[in-house]
Design a protein around this nucleic acid. Structure first.
Lengths: 243, 243
DNA sequence: TCTATTAACGAACGCTGTTCGCTACGAACA
DNA sequence: TGTTCGTAGCGAACAGCGTTCGTTAATAGA
């Protein structure tokens, strides 16, 4: 079978002349995916786009990742890993809970588009559990009943993620509008909303039209903090024997 | 040009022999879309699927609807129309706000998958404004400052929609698992989560592993009501001169 | 050195939203 | 009444998606 001397027919060309079998691992794929989400947005993240980062086709990824959903979960869990948790101090539970919420909010806002993953998946990653233990433990140690602590933790998580999701929607709109400066987008958006409210029939919507300025006064950060304090006060009211 | 007697060549066959130009309007399209979402879920809603309902192709819809996003908004606004609002009674603001939130929750839960639209779009439909005026007006008339009323309204909306979104995710999972009974799904899901928690290392996660039963005790409805009361109490604390 | 395993990957499937350009109806105008 | 014209309807196609199949080839184990 000495066919080696015969040049290979063109349809049997060797796939990659040099450096076949490059390195490709789950970590590299997750890292590339996160890079794409941060730089180009959630909608730009496709299996093809990730594969392109390694100069290959989408099929190559499926050896390391079950499917796109799993990839998203891995990326999300990777981001949650950036969250720093302090030592628990039950005496300062309210301050610590506030700082915790702001910290999670900060990390999710940094990778803004990823909140779209958070709300769509049930949190079962390592880091989700770590965060759950922190909040749940803090409330328990502060004297709350396990049942109330469970419910409070659940609502706190929902609130943070829901707010981040809303923020990511605006981020996507900004990108779609071709803008890059959040401040610029915010002002143009506020202007549109205010104009829309002002054009409403005052007879049917007296309050909305009268207080337009108040309706558009606060930005996302202030809104988040307001809801945060609403929740904290509600939780405090359910704490046993607080002065 | 008396070519009418010559039979049409087969490639020029008249498109539809009978009853060309059937009725097709935006309302009909929206109604069909809502029917599909309710019966088959949000993921089943495609332009092709809607067009199929009228025995035609997707291009036919674009004469009545700008794109899929607009169709989703129209469907969502159509659903919000089902929400009934009472006469405002500022003296009973807390009860009325509670009833309002439960009513919206009820309607969104009825068309469960539609919450996926709500959070992804900035509410500018007729019905969103109607709802906003109700909540905002109620808080103003109850004595709240416009600024606080604006923020409270915003957080209330976010909470309702965020919770509904979370519910829709579970609904999608249920459908994907081939189940049809929410009760059956809930129990199987709770069982999985409880098992997962129990398998965690107790040394690292002492509270989560100790109170597994409390963590999975409440269903979605109870969780929603708990967060609702948290918010209401927080808002009440910001009401002037409440006894 | 031979063999079994498996990562890599080209090609394809069936799906998506959307656009293009043609057809033919209904209304408006001559 | 005859003609024109705007436009709803719609078949076909495009570019992109997630995923699967089957093949190739490099490596690990015997």
């Amino acid at each position: 079978m000495a066919t080696e001397d015969v040049p290979l027919p063109p349809w049997r060309k060797s796939r990659k002349p040099a450096q076949l079998r490059r390195q490709l691992s789950q970590d590299l794929i997750v890292e590339a995916g996160l890079r794409i989400v941060d730089a180009e947005g959630f909608d730009a993240l496709s299996m093809r786009r990730v594969a392109q980062e390694f100069d290959t086709g989408p099929a190559s990824l499926y050896a390391h990742v079950a499917n796109k959903d799993e990839l998203l979960e891995l990326i999300y869990n990777r981001v949650l890993g950036e969250i720093r948790l302090p030592e628990r101090d039950p005496g300062r539970w309210k301050e610590q809970l506030r700082e915790y919420m702001l910290e999670v909010h900060r990390v999710l806002a940094k990778h803004s588009d990823l909140a779209r993953v958070a709300l769509a998946n049930i949190p079962t990653g390592e880091n989700s559990i770590r965060m759950g233990e922190f909040v749940f433990g803090l409330l328990i140690e502060a004297g709350m009943s396990p049942r109330d602590a469970s419910l409070s933790m659940d609502r706190i998580s929902l609130y943070i993620v829901g707010d981040a999701y809303e923020g990511s929607v605006h981020f996507a709109r900004m990108r779609a509008a071709g803008m890059t400066d959040p401040q610029e987008y915010f002002e143009s958006f506020i202007g549109q909303i205010a104009g829309y409210y002002r054009a409403l029939p005052a007879a049917r919507f007296p309050h909305m039209t009268k207080f337009v300025d108040d309706l558009v006064a606060d930005d996302g950060e202030q809104r988040f903090r307001y809801g945060l304090e609403l929740l904290l006060d509600g939780i405090e009211a359910r704490m046993p024997r607080t002065p």
